[in-house]
Amino acid sequence: MRFTFDGKAIPAEPGQSIGAALIAAGHRSWRRTRIDAAPRGIFCGIGICHDCLVTVDGAANRRACLVEAAEDMRVTTQEGAGRAELEC
């Protein structure tokens, strides 16, 4: 099974989270913070800290540690709040 991360194919096992698959593929970060654009990846790994947020198939703020990887999923680095289209 494969999904894409910023356009690049990432292999995943059935039942594996996006976060676990990204770590296994050597990626440590997949979000940049809202204020300082600092890189973030897995911190707590159990759905509490909201540090590992990622955009999945266009939906922002998904927790990479909780969302199961699926075939052809399109995962992209989340910039800031990930909802730039709402800004006014």
């Binding site: 809202r34 703020n61 800031g80 709040a81 909802r83 730039a84 709402l86 800004e87 006014c88």
Partner: peptide, 9 residues
Amino acid sequence: TEPLPRTIR
């Protein structure tokens, strides 16, 4: 809500 950019002024 989840954190957002400025949506409500």
